[in-house]
Amino acid sequence: MVKEKVEICVYGAEVICASCVNLPSSKETYDWLEAAVSRKFPDQPFDLSYIDIHNPPEDLEKKQFAQRVIEEDLFYPVVVIKGEIVGEGNPKLKRIYEELEKYGYQPKETP
């Protein structure tokens, strides 16, 4: 049982980070993540937000984290759940799923 609806934030930019040349773009990662999480945790609510690090929303927390991505030269996309970085550059689904399960998300049983 989901304890609380979780927001998954994907921080990135239109330009692929220099260290991530052969990896998907931040937007492609966002789309892939939305499909993967929806399949793994069907009928369980979550929010997925894409934050452009060069044009963040007015939300102070998101704006500050976007600045941190730039200042600390983090590999983007950076995937964040409740303030915890769960993926950077080439995020791993297993790590993201583990974090969601901490909040009561139940994976779909595979036959």
Rank of each mutant, 00 (worst) to 15 (best):
M1Q: 13
M1F: 08
M1C: 10
V2E: 02
E4M: 12
E4Y: 02
E4V: 12
K5A: 10
V6I: 15
I8G: 06
C9F: 09
V10S: 02
V10D: 03
V10R: 05
G12C: 06
G12E: 03
G12L: 03
A13W: 12
E14G: 14
E14N: 10
E14V: 13
E14D: 13
V15H: 09
V15S: 10
V15G: 00
C17L: 05
C17H: 15
C17S: 13
A18H: 13
A18Y: 12
A18L: 12
A18T: 14
S19F: 09
C20G: 03
V21N: 05
V21T: 15
N22H: 13
N22M: 13
L23W: 06
P24K: 14
P24E: 12
P24Q: 10
S26T: 01
S26A: 15
E28W: 05
E28P: 02
T29F: 07
T29M: 14
Y30C: 01
D31C: 05
E34A: 11
A35D: 14
A36S: 12
A36M: 10
A36V: 10
S38K: 12
S38N: 09
K40N: 11
F41E: 07
P42Q: 08
P42Y: 08
P45A: 15
P45I: 06
F46L: 12
D47F: 08
D47I: 03
L48K: 05
Y50C: 00
I51P: 04
I51F: 06
I51E: 08
I51S: 07
I51G: 04
D52L: 04
D52V: 07
D52R: 02
N55K: 13
P56D: 04
P56F: 04
P56Q: 03
P56Y: 02
P57H: 01
P57K: 01
D59S: 06
D59T: 15
L60Q: 14
L60F: 09
K62V: 02
K62A: 10
K62W: 09
K63A: 08
K63Y: 04
Q64D: 14
F65W: 03
A66W: 00
Q67H: 04
Q67M: 04
V69L: 01
V69T: 05
V69P: 03
I70T: 10
E72T: 10
E72R: 12
V78N: 00
V78L: 01
V79S: 04
I81S: 01
E84F: 04
E84R: 09
I85V: 15
I85E: 14
V86Y: 02
V86F: 02
V86S: 07
V86Q: 04
G87P: 08
G87I: 07
G87Q: 11
E88Q: 15
E88W: 02
G89S: 07
G89I: 00
G89Q: 02
N90S: 14
N90C: 11
N90Y: 14
K92N: 11
K92Y: 08
K92A: 09
L93D: 10
L93N: 11
L93Q: 15
K94T: 07
R95E: 07
R95Y: 09
R95I: 11
I96A: 00
Y97P: 01
E98L: 05
E98C: 02
E101H: 09
E101W: 04
K102Q: 12
K102I: 00
G104P: 12
G104L: 08
G104V: 09
Y105P: 04
Y105W: 03
K108L: 14
E109L: 13
P111L: 12
